[in-house]
Design a binder for these strands. Structure first.
Length: 379
DNA sequence: CCTTACGCACATTTGTAGGG
DNA sequence: CCCTACAAATGTGCGTAAGG
């Protein structure tokens, strides 16, 4: 290519004159001039670096440690009124003490100005005078520690921790924007060297598992381990089939005189038995078959999931029916209890009437008569 | 909300150790 | 080697007081 260009394209075009030094001598003298110019340049160490590498860009300055809170991110304030008041600092005690005096001296001074003046005074205050306020702040700090310990042992604090944990879980669920399903895919990697020991690398194909960014649930992990276990078993089976094929090919040359039908009957192809018909020279680890297996495995998992959902729906319906039945029985029980109570009351009344009737029957035996106390109508 | 200095709590990053 | 757990470091938010 370069030879072709050198023949067709003028030399001046390929090697332009340096710094406008006029026309160039034809042929090899131009190259010699360039070589001299290059040789006259001061030698400088050449660093083979990647300009896109952030490590190279920041290598000179001392790397500032990243971390901390991202700018603009707001925290949710705790709304618990049972939380003890935060300790007052020595500076705050100093402010309270001096503010009233300063306001008396400068009644027209705005509040922020007084604060600024007191801040300046605090900055210039000697350490021994600051010590008094620091001691008072320490006492308040001890008060805060006591109240905080009491609060942390209270049910209110435990409730707060539970609420916060629930809020975290909720925020994590709401922040999940990526699909919650596991995507299994493969892509061709043209630069991957062939590896006979690893069938996955043989044809330059690699597999990728695209997982959601949230922490993997147990179900996700189980599904992933299933796929990994399947891949391991498939690799093992493929290696065994490959060995068997090689054995068959080796014996094929020795048994040329034997009939093909006899040989097939003696060594049935395991791939044919498994429903896979490999092409000549393309063993069982053909990734099309692997892909098909994986997709079938995913289909099986999806059908299992559908069945589980149906079972869950049936169980929920049964639970609802049982709850309705339970409610009905409870209502029936209450009604029966009310009826029983009224019957008991009626029984007591009947018993009293029976006793009074017995008394009436017994009166003649004692020579007594029942007097009609009703007032005659004629009166 | 303004203003101040200070201290604490907390989220995030980074480094490290240990297990599989 | 990768992942997890933990500690340390770092930066940020917020409370504390006061009155208008």
């Amino acid at each position: 290519m370069w030879l072709f260009l050198a023949v067709l394209v003028p030399t001046e075009f390929l090697f332009p004159p340096p710094n406008g030094t006029g026309s160039l001598l034809p042929g090899s003298s131009v190259i010699q001039t360039y070589c001299r110019d290059l040789a006259s340049l001061p030698m400088q160490p050449i660093r083979l670096t990647d300009p896109g590498d952030p490590k190279e860009q920041d290598s000179e300055e001392p790397k500032k440690r990243k971390g901390g809170w991202p700018k603009g991110k707001k925290r949710k304030p705790p709304r618990d009124l049972a939380v003890p008041r935060a300790p007052t600092t020595g500076y705050a005690i100093f402010l309270n003490e001096q503010r009233s005096q300063l306001r008396a001296q400068h009644p027209n001074l705005p509040f922020p100005e007084i604060t600024k003046m007191l801040a300046a005074q605090w900055a210039q205050l000697p350490q021994e005078k600051k010590q008094r306020y620091v001691c008072e702040a320490d006492e308040d700090k001890q008060r805060y520690i006591r109240e905080l310990k009491a609060y942390q042992n209270s049910e209110a604090y435990r409730a707060f921790l539970r609420r916060r944990a629930a809020q975290k879980v909720l925020a994590r669920c709401e922040g999940e924007k990526e699909p919650a399903v596991m995507e299994l895919s493969y892509a061709k990697c043209p630069e991957a060297p062939p590896d006979k020991n690893n069938p996955l690398k043989t044809t330059g194909l690699y597999f990728s598992l695209k997982m959601p960014s949230v922490r993997l649930s147990r179900e996700h992990l189980t599904g992933l381990s299933d796929v990994q276990a399947f891949l391991g078993e498939f690799e093992k089976d493929s290696a065994e089939c490959l060995k068997h094929l090689e054995l068959l090919e080796g014996e094929e040359g020795q048994n040329l005189n034997k009939g093909d039908s006899e040989e097939e009957a003696e060594y049935p192809d395991p791939l044919l038995l498994g429903g896979l018909i490999p092409e000549k020279g393309f063993a069982s680890f053909d990734l099309c078959f692997l892909q098909e297996f994986i997709f079938k495995l995913l289909q099986i998992k999806e059908s299992e999931l559908r069945e589980l959902r149906k079972t869950l729906e049936r169980a929920q319906a049964e639970q609802e029916a049982l709850q309705r039945q339970l409610l009905e029985f409870q209502n029936r029980q209450q009604w029966l209890e009310v009826e029983l109570a009224s019957l008991k009351t009626y029984g007591v009344v009947l018993e009293k009437e029976f006793e009074s009737l017995n008394m009436v029957i017994m009166l003649p035996h004692f020579g007594l008569r029942v007097m009609d106390t009703a007032v005659p109508a004629s009166l």
